[in-house]
Nucleic acid binder design. Sequence first.
DNA 1: TTCTTTTGCTAAATCATTTTAGTATAGCTA
DNA 2: TAGCTATACTAAAATGATTTAGCAAAAGAA
Lengths: 337, 337
Amino acid sequence: MGKLSIKDIAQQCNTSITTVSFVLNGRAEEKRISKELKERILKTIEDTGYKQNQFARGMRTGKTNIIGLIIEDISNAFFSAVARIIEENAYKRGYKIIYCSTDDNTEKTKELIKLFVERNLDGYIITPPKGIEDEIQSLINQKIPVVLFDRYFPGLETDYVVVDNFNGAKKAVQHLFDAGFVNIGLITTTSDLTQMQERLDGYEEAIAENGKKPKILKIPFDNSAEQNIETISSYLKKNKDLDAIFFSTNYLAFRGLEAINELKMKIPEDIAIVAFDDQEFFKIYNPSITAVSQPIKDISIKLIDILLQKMESIDKPIEKVILPTNLIIRNSSIKIK
Amino acid sequence: MGKLSIKDIAQQCNTSITTVSFVLNGRAEEKRISKELKERILKTIEDTGYKQNQFARGMRTGKTNIIGLIIEDISNAFFSAVARIIEENAYKRGYKIIYCSTDDNTEKTKELIKLFVERNLDGYIITPPKGIEDEIQSLINQKIPVVLFDRYFPGLETDYVVVDNFNGAKKAVQHLFDAGFVNIGLITTTSDLTQMQERLDGYEEAIAENGKKPKILKIPFDNSAEQNIETISSYLKKNKDLDAIFFSTNYLAFRGLEAINELKMKIPEDIAIVAFDDQEFFKIYNPSITAVSQPIKDISIKLIDILLQKMESIDKPIEKVILPTNLIIRNSSIKIK
DNA sequence: TTCTTTTGCTAAATCATTTTAGTATAGCTA
DNA sequence: TAGCTATACTAAAATGATTTAGCAAAAGAA
């Protein structure tokens, strides 16, 4: 059954293991195996259904044909959508995916990278939490292909794919001003990773350009959903002058909607809303929610593309990709007269 | 660096490779290795940071410590939530996860299983599409541990974890009758997999018990989102007498909400809604949506639990787990007087 | 004392490949 | 006809573990 080895093929073809191996690895030309023998071997492989043993192969070559996908949280819609497309494209090109969620936990991520490196995965796609610069650098030093996404380390020369968070955020806030809102707050996380910092900067610049003062609520990543609702709720109660809120990330927008519901406030009459990172949900919600949408497909395809190129030749020049976002204007940010 | 082999450890400890291997595999007692030598070996391993080469190990043992997670669609919230918990628990117990999405496509799934079996994964958790009974049976024959979930094959003696779809659906529909609705339609997929069939049966039984006639719309799985909205929209227009709809799955409920919005119908005044498979979204939506919730955590834990037991001893008796669902009543199914 | 058993360990085979360093033969050149 | 080159292949080493079979010394039994 599954017990066929290269030896069996060699015997059946009256040739050597070496020759079969060359044919198997597409080195027949190079090694001047005659067309005839090559065909015979190929046919035998086909007929018998022989498959290479991946362990033995990996043992010699150190290759696994497996890519490690290390993301913040597979159950978050943005990440699972990206994971989905990466998976699809990786499979098409003969690679499998091992994935895991980091929860943005530095220690957990370090562990995971160590674990994966032990297993000799061929390449990595990572949304890094803070504090793992050394681990990433060490991968690069070991010539192991890595591409970061969603955020990156400014001090590190790595390939990455991110979106233009700064302009995405700035445009969103400017849109609120244009729509006639005046006091615009920001609800964001305490994270100082690039993507969050840039969204914050975009908000602040738009605020400054309109001659206003920023009003920012920062919430730790590891708070529970209930805590978040509570925090946002009391922030809204304390800041009655706010007429619009920009949420820097989708899960905070969810909590915000719950808080707003609890307070029986109306969107956009009592408070207008814009969220970063569009969701199917935002389109259906009543009122529909204006959002900064990330080009999920482009991100995913670019990621897997860069990684595979890197895996083919590790000395490929570094690529830093910044993709544009798209502001989708819906009812939650349109003033009702 | 990573170049340490068991040989190096043996040399440093002035002992044989065999002995180190025994210690490494926890067989020191059994093989009567002296406490002293064992400690010395362990210490050297610790000090040098030696790690077993997984290829070489796998080559001898055929084990990978990797579990294959083959699910319908990682970007569906229900599946990604399950994946998340399985992942967490697998890692805790020293296993990694390779996953992939099937799209409920029979051919794709067959390919995937073949691919994974070639790689000698240690066990499988699968949401099977139709028509892969033979592949599952073949896994069982080869004594490879498998647990199915979400649906199963009635003719096959396999471990599985599902929910009580029949009673979940029946209760949901009965609840609509109890709330005063009279003409209740079902929107479901054309799939004849167990979970969908049972939900359909549950609906029909509730309808029959209330002396009504069923009104069912079946939509193929591979239709696009836009097609689905269109189909539901014209169904609603044609069946003006309906005052409530039961959606058999979450993505159809989404499309339904979009169609209802487009038609400017009001929930629950014009049409009441109950969906199978609760979502965070349903709680926040306005009005909030009544839903049959699946015990995601219990499902996931049970799955990984059964699989790991099976991996320890393949002859573990088969377990067929049917978990109860929970009807969460919200505003979309409460009659307004 | 001699034989048997237990203790503590190890040599060597094995797993299925890749790859290096060849060899043997045929054909061509001078 | 000797020498060289190209062609078509192969033997054997190496990869890093697990595991079978067995050995030497010490302890215990008769």
